[in-house]
Design a protein around this nucleic acid. Structure first.
Lengths: 232, 232
DNA sequence: CCTCCAAGCTTCACACTGTTAAGCAAATCT
DNA sequence: AGATTTGCTTAACAGTGTGAAGCTTGGAGG
């Protein structure tokens, strides 16, 4: 081993800082993250913390990356958990919703108002989890359909500009969907995201405690309707 | 006139403060609103500002109320502007989207992460505009259909608890929709909101400049599909 | 073993935030 | 004319992120 003691200490320190930061975000919201407060809870000064994260942005970047990863993991876990009798897309959507509710502040961190003064790093590693997420939802939404079928889906005619733009993504991005498939997916994803965002941000409180039911119904119909638009 | 000079001065001062606050929000985002900075730009001290808004929360409350009102106004204006050949629901949705894009920071103020330390006042006057908004969208989504038709809409069967809860709203709220109508509306609203939120918060940049087209297509289909679920 | 260097951490400082308190001048009301 | 409210001042407090200077360890090379 090269430099064990110090490296181990550093690793645990980083972990402790992230844990405490996550706790503070959970309590006060994403904007409530204060380096000094985190350091105080850990019994150190701010400047000590600066040796592990050179700036507030670096800490936030780590938290965002982690949140995307955890969210994607949660959905894959939900999907791999025994048969629920529900379509897998519905399971994934409910996993998304469940994570958002259970980790509301972290959900806000990645999908809410960008944090004041925060600049995301240029290498977009932050959103690797987001791409994984999209990939999973695309897979489950179009499970059993070929790209050829999707290309003939019932979507409003796409302008040449839009079509060429949507056809220009690298094959691995967006699971190699044809333009019509992208249109279908964006529509569907908009609905899933919208319902979860409305609920997480408190705009559907009036619907009462039976929101699960409404959500499930909406997503089931969304899935059925999407499939209805894809020819045999 | 009772107290003209002072009252007029106060009115213009309040207006100037709100204008400047709006400008600062537009530049730095909702969380970037700083009383001291607003006061400085107006050539006064913070404590002077405190005579017009007793606290930061009061200023924010005024801005939120105003934003909801402006948004609702923008949509009604869009609806009252000559015939576009589009379904009125699509016009309303596009008005919503256009306002969100044009006033991104104010949109975040009302639909994004709640501001740190902000507590909304107990009398819910803030959201009067939000209710007006919902009312407009409900009206346009279900234009030409009777409550009776809506009650027989093709939605997943609602549990007794949910049905009684949804039937328990006062008649003027939610335009007196039957439970099935509420379910339809929430589904539709989730999609409109989701697509706009995704775009406003920068999660659909990869779709390029032709997002208008995708949005219009999504909403047109949403409208058609919703109507398809309502029996004759 | 001793030296040397960097990692880890300290204290001090700066400019910024919202909010409160005490005090003074001008406009308004009685 | 006197009393009172309104408008505004300066001073202060507890927070925030970030920087500079300096001390104390841990770990590696001679």
């Amino acid at each position: 081993m090269t430099t064990p003691l110090r490296q181990r200490r550093r690793a645990t320190a980083v972990r402790e800082i992230l844990d405490e930061a996550r706790a503070q975000i959970a309590e006060h919201g994403p904007a409530g993250l204060a380096l000094r407060s985190v350091a105080r809870s850990l019994g150190m000064t701010v400047q000590a913390l600066y040796h592990y994260f050179p700036s507030r942005d670096d800490l936030i970047t780590a938290l965002i990356t982690e949140a995307y990863r955890d969210l994607a993991d949660a959905i894959e876990t939900a999907l791999s958990t025994g048969d629920t009798g529900l379509p897998r897309f519905v399971v994934a959507a409910e996993g998304f919703r469940a994570w958002a509710i259970a980790h509301a502040a972290r959900f806000q961190l990645i999908y809410g108002t960008p944090l004041l003064h925060y600049r995301a790093p240029e290498d977009g590693d932050t959103t690797a989890g987001a791409r994984r997420l999209a990939s999973v939802f695309i897979r489950e939404l179009f499970d059993g359909f070929t790209p050829d079928q999707l290309a003939r889906a019932d979507v409003p005619p796409l302008s040449p500009e839009l079509r060429t733009h949507l056809a220009g993504f690298p094959p691995h991005a967006l699971n190699g969907l044809p333009p019509e498939g992208i249109a279908l997916f964006v529509t569907a994803w908009g609905q899933v995201h919208g319902l979860v965002v409305l609920e997480t941000f408190g705009h559907t409180d009036f619907l009462g405690p039976q929101r699960d039911e409404l959500f499930r119904g909406s997503i089931r119909h969304l899935l059925a309707d999407t499939h209805r638009r894809i020819p045999a």
